[in-house]
């Protein structure tokens, strides 16, 4: 565990909590892509099946349980409790275009051709693109609430910090995992356009709105 790993995990946790609180406090999931949240629930479920087979640490287990629990709670709030506020018309990204190729890639390119390992690989690949329905929704409506942009910033920052963690581990532990690194780079790159808008607009007190 190094400082980048820890801050990455905390940034991820902050993102998840920010989104849950935003929906809970405003009693609304307007502007939030339910499809992205379903994808994240699938990501956590397929990645953390090793909860049942191996124990790493109290930290590891509790973070996994919190991530999975919050992901399902978010999906529940969007599709059940506050479904009247869900903006399904603007959440029109075709997720099968993500899930099917990612599933195929996980079967073809993995560390080990076993059930759990393929599911883990699938979750890594899927996570790298799971935010696309959310970004697509924002580009469609042309705007995002400021609290939603804080959520996205923390979520993007988390993987960027993991990249630094992997560089650290490469130098100090001679460890690297090509699958996680490539997917992590893709994931971080997808946020670059958003990072630019966040820094130039939101941090200067302006609302994030895209030119028509």
């Amino acid at each position: 565990m190094n400082v980048f790993r820890l801050t990455g995990d905390l940034s991820h946790l902050a993102a998840i909590i920010i989104l849950l609180l935003k929906i809970w406090k405003s009693r609304s999931c307007a502007g939030i892509s339910g499809k992205s949240q379903i994808l994240f629930a699938i990501v956590f479920t397929t990645r953390y099946l090793d909860l049942l087979t191996s124990f790493i640490s109290i930290y590891n287990t509790s973070m996994k349980v919190i991530y999975i629990g919050c992901a399902y709670a978010t999906v529940y709030l969007i599709y059940m409790k506050f479904r009247a506020t869900y903006d399904g018309n603007h959440d029109s990204f075709r997720v099968e275009f993500l899930v099917v190729p990612v599933g195929g890639l996980a079967v073809l390119v993995n560390h080990d051709f076993s059930f759990l390992e393929i599911l883990w690989t699938f979750s890594i690949y899927l996570e790298s693109v799971a935010i696309l329905p959310q970004l697509f929704m924002i580009s469609k409506t042309g705007e995002a609430e400021t609290i939603t942009t804080h959520y996205l910033f923390c979520l993007g920052l988390y993987r960027a910090l993991y990249l630094l963690n992997w560089i650290w581990r490469f130098y100090f532990e001679s460890f690297f995992d090509m699958i996680a690194i490539v997917a992590g780079v893709v994931q971080t790159v997808l946020y670059c356009d958003f990072f630019y808008l966040y820094i130039t607009k939101v941090l200067k007190g302006k609302k994030l709105s895209l030119p028509a």
Binding site: M1, R5, D9, H12, D50, S54, I56, S57, N60, M63, K64, Y67, H111, D112, E117, W120, Y162, N165, R169, F175, F176, D177, M178, I179, A180
Partner: peptide, 10 residues
């Protein structure tokens, strides 16, 4: 080469 994954990461 592909190194095996880090089981301790989230």
């Amino acid at each position: 080469c592909l190194r095996k994954r880090a089981k301790d990461e989230l």
